[in-house]
Design a protein around this nucleic acid. Sequence first.
DNA 1: GTGATGACGATAT
DNA 2: TATATCGCCATCA
Length: 129
Amino acid sequence: MSDMRSRIYLLVKQIPAGRVATYGQIARLVGPPCDAREVGSAMAALGPNTDVPWQRVINSQGGISTRGYRQRALLEAEGIEFNEKSLTNLKRFGWKGPEFAWLVENGFTPLAPPEEEEPPPPPEQLSLL
DNA sequence: GTGATGACGATAT
DNA sequence: TATATCGCCATCA
Protein backbone atom coordinates (compact mmCIF):
# COMPACT_ATOMS: atom_id res chain seq x y z
CA MET A 1 0.00 0.00 0.00
CA SER A 2 1.30 3.42 -0.91
CA ASP A 3 2.42 5.74 1.81
CA MET A 4 -0.04 8.39 0.77
CA ARG A 5 -3.05 6.13 0.98
CA SER A 6 -1.90 4.91 4.36
CA ARG A 7 -1.91 8.51 5.54
CA ILE A 8 -5.33 9.11 4.02
CA TYR A 9 -6.78 6.08 5.77
CA LEU A 10 -5.17 7.03 9.05
CA LEU A 11 -6.86 10.41 8.91
CA VAL A 12 -10.26 9.08 7.88
CA LYS A 13 -10.15 6.74 10.87
CA GLN A 14 -10.03 9.80 13.09
CA ILE A 15 -13.44 11.03 11.95
CA PRO A 16 -15.86 10.24 14.78
CA ALA A 17 -19.29 8.74 14.15
CA GLY A 18 -21.88 11.42 13.60
CA ARG A 19 -19.46 13.75 11.84
CA VAL A 20 -18.35 14.09 8.22
CA ALA A 21 -15.29 15.46 6.44
CA THR A 22 -14.84 16.47 2.81
CA TYR A 23 -12.44 14.98 0.28
CA GLY A 24 -10.69 18.30 0.00
CA GLN A 25 -10.37 18.62 3.75
CA ILE A 26 -8.64 15.26 4.04
CA ALA A 27 -6.39 16.13 1.10
CA ARG A 28 -5.29 19.38 2.73
CA LEU A 29 -4.47 17.55 5.94
CA VAL A 30 -2.37 14.98 4.10
CA GLY A 31 -0.66 17.84 2.30
CA PRO A 32 0.60 18.20 -1.26
CA PRO A 33 0.88 16.50 -3.65
CA CYS A 34 -2.29 14.85 -2.38
CA ASP A 35 -5.52 16.28 -3.78
CA ALA A 36 -9.24 15.63 -3.40
CA ARG A 37 -9.37 13.23 -6.32
CA GLU A 38 -6.70 11.10 -4.76
CA VAL A 39 -8.75 10.84 -1.57
CA GLY A 40 -11.75 9.68 -3.56
CA SER A 41 -9.61 7.16 -5.35
CA ALA A 42 -8.33 5.87 -2.04
CA MET A 43 -11.87 5.42 -0.74
CA ALA A 44 -12.85 3.53 -3.89
CA ALA A 45 -9.96 1.14 -3.35
CA LEU A 46 -11.21 0.00 0.04
CA GLY A 47 -12.61 -3.49 0.41
CA PRO A 48 -16.02 -4.39 1.86
CA ASN A 49 -14.72 -5.33 5.30
CA THR A 50 -12.57 -2.33 5.96
CA ASP A 51 -12.24 -0.61 9.31
CA VAL A 52 -11.99 2.74 7.58
CA PRO A 53 -15.20 4.80 7.97
CA TRP A 54 -15.26 5.77 4.30
CA GLN A 55 -18.91 6.80 4.48
CA ARG A 56 -17.95 9.85 6.53
CA VAL A 57 -16.09 11.39 3.60
CA ILE A 58 -18.33 13.47 1.34
CA ASN A 59 -17.93 16.22 -1.22
CA SER A 60 -17.48 19.93 -0.56
CA GLN A 61 -21.16 20.61 -1.22
CA GLY A 62 -22.10 18.40 1.70
CA GLY A 63 -23.46 15.75 -0.65
CA ILE A 64 -22.84 12.08 -1.40
CA SER A 65 -20.67 11.27 -4.40
CA THR A 66 -21.24 7.52 -4.47
CA ARG A 67 -24.01 5.85 -6.44
CA GLY A 68 -26.94 4.27 -4.71
CA TYR A 69 -28.37 4.62 -1.22
CA ARG A 70 -25.73 2.84 0.86
CA GLN A 71 -23.57 5.71 2.05
CA ARG A 72 -26.49 7.92 2.94
CA ALA A 73 -28.13 5.13 4.91
CA LEU A 74 -24.96 4.54 6.89
CA LEU A 75 -24.64 8.22 7.72
CA GLU A 76 -28.27 8.62 8.72
CA ALA A 77 -27.80 5.65 11.02
CA GLU A 78 -25.08 7.70 12.72
CA GLY A 79 -27.37 10.67 13.13
CA ILE A 80 -26.37 12.72 10.10
CA GLU A 81 -29.31 14.59 8.60
CA PHE A 82 -29.89 15.47 4.96
CA ASN A 83 -31.99 18.30 3.60
CA GLU A 84 -34.43 18.19 0.68
CA LYS A 85 -31.51 18.50 -1.73
CA SER A 86 -29.71 15.53 -0.16
CA LEU A 87 -27.07 17.76 1.37
CA THR A 88 -25.83 17.75 4.95
CA ASN A 89 -25.15 20.92 6.88
CA LEU A 90 -21.38 20.95 7.20
CA LYS A 91 -21.68 23.64 9.84
CA ARG A 92 -23.47 21.17 12.07
CA PHE A 93 -22.01 17.81 11.09
CA GLY A 94 -18.63 18.81 9.71
CA TRP A 95 -15.55 17.45 11.48
CA LYS A 96 -13.16 20.08 12.81
CA GLY A 97 -10.18 17.87 12.10
CA PRO A 98 -7.72 16.16 14.45
CA GLU A 99 -5.99 18.00 17.26
CA PHE A 100 -2.81 19.84 16.37
CA ALA A 101 -0.84 17.56 18.68
CA TRP A 102 -2.21 14.46 16.97
CA LEU A 103 -1.08 15.70 13.59
CA VAL A 104 2.41 16.40 14.83
CA GLU A 105 2.75 13.06 16.57
CA ASN A 106 1.65 11.21 13.46
CA GLY A 107 4.01 12.88 11.10
CA PHE A 108 1.64 15.38 9.53
CA THR A 109 2.58 18.99 8.96
CA PRO A 110 -0.50 21.15 9.44
CA LEU A 111 -0.41 24.18 7.20
CA ALA A 112 -2.41 26.24 9.67
CA PRO A 113 -1.00 25.86 13.22
CA PRO A 114 -3.29 27.02 16.02
CA GLU A 115 -3.38 30.79 16.21
CA GLU A 116 -3.54 32.18 19.72
CA GLU A 117 -2.99 35.73 18.55
CA GLU A 118 -5.96 38.04 18.18
CA PRO A 119 -6.64 39.23 14.66
CA PRO A 120 -5.60 42.83 14.04
CA PRO A 121 -8.29 45.25 15.26
CA PRO A 122 -10.35 46.86 12.53
CA PRO A 123 -9.51 50.46 11.70
CA GLU A 124 -11.51 53.06 13.56
CA GLN A 125 -12.21 55.32 10.64
CA LEU A 126 -14.99 53.97 8.50
CA SER A 127 -16.09 56.94 6.41
CA LEU A 128 -13.01 58.70 5.20
CA LEU A 129 -13.25 58.36 1.46
C1' DG B 1 7.45 4.34 -20.22
C1' DT B 2 2.99 6.33 -21.68
C1' DG B 3 -1.68 7.47 -21.68
C1' DA B 4 -6.38 7.08 -19.59
C1' DT B 5 -8.95 7.61 -15.47
C1' DG B 6 -11.49 9.24 -11.35
C1' DA B 7 -16.33 8.46 -4.71
C1' DC B 8 -13.00 16.26 -6.40
C1' DG B 9 -12.93 21.32 -6.30
C1' DA B 10 -12.62 26.07 -7.77
C1' DT B 11 -13.82 29.17 -11.42
C1' DA B 12 -16.04 30.80 -15.39
C1' DT B 13 -20.32 31.46 -18.14
C1' DT C 1 -28.72 29.42 -9.12
C1' DA C 2 -27.18 25.79 -12.53
C1' DT C 3 -24.14 23.76 -16.00
C1' DA C 4 -19.63 23.56 -18.21
C1' DT C 5 -14.56 23.61 -18.07
C1' DC C 6 -10.16 23.10 -16.50
C1' DG C 7 -6.53 21.87 -13.12
C1' DC C 8 -5.05 18.50 -10.24
C1' DC C 9 -1.89 13.90 -9.68
C1' DA C 10 -1.33 9.14 -7.91
C1' DT C 11 -2.78 4.75 -9.94
C1' DC C 12 -3.53 1.38 -13.18
C1' DA C 13 -3.52 -1.08 -17.64
